[in-house]
Simulated scan of single mutants.
Amino acid sequence: MPKPLSRLREQSAQATLEWLGATLVLALTLGAAAVVGGERVDGLRFATGFARHLVCAISGSDCDRGDGALRRAYGSEVAELVRDHAPGLVYRARERSLANTPHLPSGLRGRHQAQELDFPVDWRSCRRPACARLRTAGGAVSRTSHGRPIVAFVRVRRVAARLYVQYWLYYPDSRTRTLVDPIFGAFGRPGPGYHADDWEAYELKFERDGRVYARASHHGDWFPCRLGTFDKARQIIRDELPRAIPLPGLRAVTQRLPAVRRSCVRWLPYGGWTQVDEGSHANTLDPQGRPVRARDGTFVAPADIVLVPIDRNPRSRAGYRAHGPVDPPWRKEVFDDPEAPDS
């Protein structure tokens, strides 16, 4: 007797899911092994991208990561280049291991402490710190605890024979750690490294001969450039201290210090991943251009980032009002001069 059609469909769906699950596990295992081992081959990037395309193709669900908007803004060729070179984000795992904590469930031992991390979001729908956060103990992340997708705003610019691509990441606030934070905390005030609105960036330079170079924002610099200790202290005293301690006349005093002038412009070989500080969101790249190791950390795969053209889409900028001292990308010098030393 022939099986009912519904029964056949159920069995077919189950077989498809089992095949899909096995394929994803294999792809992710191979990819994670390549990156965790620190090899040049970026298997994790390939595996996560492959997994997303596979799931979308089979499920038929809405898997748009902004690729249609990229094609409309830049054409198919540049849009593909922008998508293929989007950065993966790796968040530093905390140093303290839970391996020797006896009262924890055995499944948590040996893993790093769960932490609440910030992820870049679309400022048009999320400007509160809570909607950009997620408590996680590691692994892949594609949405925040409020269900917000991970978003990067894109700027493409040609200068002579070079093509530059900027990926701008918006966080509702920034909490750079300083030595005096406990003192401010005792008085119920945020430290001098805190401010609302935070725009970080990952920038690529494509040479005519096919070479690709990268740099990433790091406390006003572009990593691998970094301010020296003296200049950093001067910047905190001059620009951040008056904001943290709003005393009459304090800003007038600190403004007598000479402003920090950045001049360093350096690029590193493209590696595809950037390591993000959990508080300030400052970026660090591997000096050799190798993929950043994702072992025991939290990461956002490039394929899971929604890309929004910021230069060809006026709606991506309309209505923005700064909540803090940080300028949005389109008001920064580097938006028009991709070799500018300030981020």
Rank of each mutant, 00 (worst) to 15 (best):
L5H: 03
E10Q: 14
Q11Y: 13
Q11H: 09
S12C: 06
Q14R: 09
T16V: 10
T16W: 14
L17G: 09
G21T: 08
A22Q: 15
L24E: 09
L26F: 13
A27P: 04
A32W: 13
V36D: 14
V36S: 11
G37L: 08
G38N: 11
E39P: 05
F46L: 10
F46I: 00
V55T: 04
S59T: 14
S59I: 07
S59H: 02
D67P: 00
D67F: 13
G68S: 09
A69D: 14
E77W: 05
A79M: 01
L81A: 03
D84Q: 01
D84C: 09
P87T: 03
Y91W: 15
R92A: 12
S97P: 05
L104Q: 03
P105N: 08
S106Y: 01
G107Q: 14
G107Y: 15
L108P: 01
R109E: 03
G110A: 08
G110F: 04
Q113G: 12
Q113A: 14
Q115K: 13
E116R: 12
L117H: 05
D118W: 11
V121E: 12
D122T: 11
D122P: 09
S125H: 06
C126M: 07
R128C: 07
A137S: 14
G138A: 07
G139C: 08
R143K: 11
R143H: 14
H146N: 10
V151E: 00
V151R: 05
V156F: 05
R158T: 06
V159W: 12
V159M: 14
V165F: 05
V165L: 03
Y167P: 02
W168D: 14
Y170W: 01
Y171T: 12
D173Y: 02
R177C: 00
L179E: 14
D181Y: 00
P182E: 12
I183P: 02
A186C: 08
A186N: 02
G188S: 02
P192Y: 08
G193P: 12
Y194V: 04
Y194C: 04
D198P: 07
D198Y: 06
E200G: 10
A201D: 06
Y202L: 13
L204N: 09
K205I: 10
K205A: 15
R208D: 07
D209Y: 02
Y213C: 03
A214S: 13
A216S: 04
S217Y: 00
H219A: 09
G220A: 06
W222K: 05
W222L: 05
F223R: 05
R226A: 12
G228I: 04
F230K: 04
K232D: 15
Q235Y: 09
I237L: 14
D239Q: 13
D239L: 03
L250C: 00
V260W: 11
R262Y: 02
R266K: 15
W267R: 00
Y270N: 06
T274V: 15
Q275G: 09
Q275P: 03
E278R: 11
E278I: 15
G279F: 07
N283Q: 12
N283F: 11
D286G: 03
D286S: 11
G289M: 10
R290Q: 06
R293I: 12
A303N: 03
I305N: 13
I305V: 15
I305M: 12
I310D: 13
I310R: 08
Y320K: 02
D336A: 11
E339A: 11
